[in-house]
């Protein structure tokens, strides 16, 4: 059962309460999402670490039930 955008956003916000999560449905099939995540928690982290943080927030579903999440990350403009 593919993950809904609400699930993705909720999981990320549980881990990063200040996160803003922009989700775009790439294929209109509720299974190919692009997510842009912005949170201060990324400060000082490399891109790889930032993505790993998001994957951890998604509780290991990435690569499993969620196989196509196009992810970009950024720090909030302070």
């Amino acid at each position: 059962m593919p993950m809904s955008s609400a699930d993705i956003e909720r999981l990320i916000k549980i881990k990063f309460p200040d996160a803003s999560v922009q989700l775009t449905d790439l294929a209109g099939d509720n299974d190919h999402w692009a997510a842009h995540v912005v949170t201060s928690a990324f400060k000082g982290k490399s891109r790889v670490q930032q993505h790993q943080m998001v994957y951890d927030a998604l509780g290991g579903r990435m690569g499993g039930v969620l196989h196509a999440l196009q992810l970009t990350t950024a720090l909030p403009a302070d």
């Binding site: 891109r47 790889v48 993505h51 196009q70 992810l71 970009t72």
Partner: peptide, 11 residues
């Protein structure tokens, strides 16, 4: 390790 497809595209 540099990254997966997303990071490669962004970089």
């Amino acid at each position: 390790f540099v990254g997966g497809c997303d990071i490669m595209r962004e970089m």
